[in-house]
Design a protein around this nucleic acid. Structure first.
Length: 652
RNA sequence: GCUGCUGUGGCUCAGUGGUAGAGCGCACCCUUGGUAAGGGUGAGGUCGAAAGUUCGAUUCUUUCCGGCGGCACCA
């Protein structure tokens, strides 16, 4: 019989009979290893434990308790869910069911969508299926047989999937008991290996193949873990994270609100607006330090400009359009004639910035010009897209456009990446995901220009020492872009910072500078934002800090609370001194017990309390209590004030 | 925009085919208390909107609107 050579991860080699399975290899090493293994890595592919290995290979046994084992658990759970659904709801079509972070989902095609009540029933059946312990059996089918089989069963979605698989790929089918599904694999040996540490979490709609013109499927999300303890820990983590939701904290901390009449726009309350202003002030100082100058441009602009810029054609459905006419004030008759010239609320600042650039004549010596604006933009976002501060219809970007020569693109990009990195570090964000969105199929400009643009951004990332992921096809039609993503409390990612190269708009709006050669040239435009929008970034900040913002951003930095009415006068003096020192301080002389006051201000997440009673009034001290600490510290007031003022300074 | 769920005092939530309740908060009174809720009294709600079924709808049905989740779209 033929022999094959197997190389283990530690570099050791052994020979086995040709056709040996991963399981047999494991058994030859140790019974315990065979028991713990659930799949095998052959070369760089993951295989079923039972699949015969027919050639010399490097082999690595995958154990259930490892990271890859967990991925297999989740994938197998998704299959079992699909089986349970088809057993319980005949006629339901299965489509795709990939793993996601912390779990999996499976999309089903069914006339009547599932309700949350169904989840419990499905879960119960899943436990039954797992207890049956059927083996996962891999079969390779002929393509046409597979298509015919699924079509015959009324599984049109599955048939479509197979039709679109690359021609050279095996059509592998996995059977578990009576049930089977198209799947690339691998799977664990039996359903029993899944265990019972899973939970179905939500039902949702999802378009077939992610295309809103196609059918709406029902998606069921679930989470799965190696054991009950991990599952419980995960569920508790999610529960805790939900308490950090910025919409909840915004209400509890009285930061802002939103209401139906101004859907998607924010009513900033005094406390929230403190955060907003502090953030704006901080980023303004940062921009000044980086050589930007600030401008302010109109919010309402005639659509002639939007036509020229291309927004009217490409972005109109997201714009708020305003007719330039006196509305009819009579009781009857339409308010608007429909004949007036149209204006639009700006959705972006860029065309307006080009107008400033175009005033007068610009020399190559003037470049780069870095033009910043905290421009208030409006976008008519789809109703279903709105989400607290994260997705709004009226937003303020920390926007700027850099007009430069093409040979300055890389250095400007590097400088931007460094600036962004420093800002994110100041604000406490290390976990930023960077994505480089590359040329889409439909695009403006020569390929050679795109080559240079993409290279410019890549070079910038590498020079700035930043790790990133490339997203083919995701760039804007006018140029590639860098996206900087941050996560909210429950792990959803939101794009905040961005850097986009634009060769198109300067052309469309005829921006030019006089070069060294005395003739006109087109500048390149870099659209860039660090925070993205103040609204979204503040939302992320609130969630990331769980409302306990750093001192410089805290709406109330310190509350002076009295223990008895006898200390009120002393407290008032302290208050005035702190107020004059520029601190955001509140005085609490209410007729309440100190326990109550401490609790209330702790719940309100006030970072520092100065507690004063008769003793402090006599000694000229304060008892400092910091949020999150049970201890108090009695300090001379002047020293306390000085040190507090020091620690309330913004990072830049 | 599509889709599932959902909508009761400022907030969190009970509840019912016969027009509503709790806790917190708020107001007033008592209490001057040393670090996460002292006590009492009281005010406050067209039960998201409209139509329908019914003798009668906050409760059932339909439509619309908002909120939440997901998809699509996006900072």
């Amino acid at each position: 019989m033929d022999q094959i050579t197997v190389i283990f991860p530690d570099g050791s080699e052994r020979s086995f009979d040709k056709g040996v399975s991963g399981l047999e290899i494991a058994e030859s090493i140790a019974k315990s290893l065979a028991k713990a293994s659930v799949a095998v890595q052959v070369g760089d592919e993951l295989w079923d434990l039972s699949r015969p290995i027919n050639g010399d290979s490097s082999v690595n046994l995958i154990k259930r308790d490892g990271d890859e084992g967990l991925e297999l658990i989740r994938h197998d759970t998704a299959h079992v869910m699909a089986q349970a659904v088809q057993e319980l709801f005949p006629g339901t079509q299965v489509t795709i069911g990939p793993n996601i972070e912390n779990g999996f989902f499976y999309d089903f095609g069914r006339k009547e969508p599932f309700s949350t009540d169904d989840l419990e029933i499905i879960e119960k059946r899943m436990h039954d299926i797992i207890n049956r312990g059927d083996a996962f059996v891999r079969e390779v089918w002929d393509r046409n047989t597979a298509i015919a089989y699924f079509k015959d069963k009324g599984e049109d979605f599955k048939a479509e999937l197979i039709e679109d698989l690359p021609g050279d790929e095996d059509i592998s089918i996995y059977r578990q008991g009576e049930w089977l599904d198209l799947c690339r694999g691998p799977h664990m040996p039996t359903t029993k290996h899944i265990g019972h540490a899973f939970k179905l979490t939500k039902v949702a709609g999802a378009y077939w193949r992610g295309d809103s013109s196609k059918a709406m499927l029902t998606r069921i999300y679930g989470t799965a873990w190696r054991d009950e303890k991990e599952l419980a820990a995960y569920l508790e983590m999610v529960e805790e994270a939900e308490k950090r939701d910025h919409r909840k904290l915004g209400r509890e901390m009285n930061l802002f609100h939103m209401q139906e009449e101004a859907q998607g726009s924010v009513f900033w309350h005094p406390k929230g607006y403190v955060i907003y202003n502090e953030m704006e002030g901080y980023i303004r100082r940062r921009l000044r330090g980086a050589g930007y100058s600030e401008v302010k441009t109109p919010m309402l602009i005639d659509n002639k400009l939007w036509e020229k810029s291309g927004h009217w054609g490409k972005f109109r459905e997201n714009m708020f359009v305003v007719p330039d006419e006196v509305p009819n004030t009579e009781e009857d008759g339409p308010v608007l004639s429909g004949k007036a010239r149209l204006m639009a609320l700006k959705p972006m600042n860029c065309p307006a910035h080009v107008q400033i650039f175009r005033q007068g004549i610009t020399s190559y010596r003037d470049l780069p010009i870095r033009m910043a604006e905290f421009g208030c933009c409006h976008r008519n976002e789809a109703h279903g897209a709105l989400h607290g501060l994260m997705r709004v219809r009226q937003m303020t970007q920390d926007d700027a456009h850099i007009f430069c020569r093409e040979d300055q693109v890389t250095s400007e990009s590097v400088a931007f990446c460094e600036l962004l990195h420093n800002v994110y570090k100041d604000l406490g964000f290390e976990g930023v995901e960077i994505k480089l969105a590359l040329r889409p199929d439909v695009r403006a400009g020569e390929d050679e220009v795109w080559d240079r643009a993409e290279k410019g951004l890549r070079d910038a990332l590498e020079q700035a020492g930043l790790e990133y992921e490339e997203l083919p096809n995701e760039g804007a039609f006018y140029g590639p872009k860098l996206e900087f993503h941050l996560k909210d409390a429950i792990g959803r990612t939101w794009q905040c910072g961005t850097l986009q190269l634009d060769f198109v708009l300067p052309e469309r709006l005829d921006a030019s500078y006089i070069g060294e050669d005395g003739s006109k040239h087109r500048p390149v435009m870099l659209h860039r934002a660090i925070l993205g929008t103040l609204e979204r970034f503040i939302g992320i900040m609130i969630e990331s800090y769980g409302g306990k913002l750093p001192l410089w951003l805290a709406p109330v930095q310190c509350v002076i609370a009295t223990i008895t009415g006898d200390a009120d006068e002393y407290a008032r003096k302290l208050y005035q001194k702190m107020f004059d020192a520029g601190l955001r301080v509140e005085l609490d002389t209410r007729n309440e017990k100190i326990n109550y006051k401490v609790r209330e201000h702790s719940v309100a997440k006030v970072p520092v309390m100065f507690v004063v009673g008769n003793r402090e009034a006599e000694e000229g001290t304060v008892a400092i209590r910091r949020l999150g600490s049970r201890d108090q510290e009695v300090v001379d007031f002047e020293k306390a004030l000085e040190s507090l003022a020091q620690s309330c300074k913004a990072p830049y």
